[in-house]
Amino acid sequence: MIDFEKVKLKVNDKEITIGCVLESNGSTANLKTGAWRSKRPVVDFDKCIGCGTCWMLCPEGCISKREDGKFEIDLDYCKGCGICANECPVKCIKMIMEEK
């Protein structure tokens, strides 16, 4: 088994890893790409039928199923592309301008 602690070393006081390997842990989540957004999706949960189309097509994978079966968008990561709003079969998502 790989001991990820043993793979670490320090050069110039910077922590790096042998052969620049990383644990596949989805750590890009450290960067909240929601800051890139110029338009924001707003879901009308009364209209949402919980089909999952938005979830399946979102390039970010930042849409998740709520306990009530409807889908919510994590605005920390949503880049505001608008695919969800365009594809929603019941048109329950609206894109509105972000306020700066």
Binding site: T28, C51, K65
Partner: peptide, 20 residues
């Protein structure tokens, strides 16, 4: 969901363009 597993193996926070 829609016949696809819910689990994600490709995490958000990736730097792809919007709408990629």
């Amino acid at each position: 969901i829609m016949g696809l597993p819910e689990e994600e193996y490709f995490s958000y926070g990736h730097r792809a363009c919007a709408g990629c």
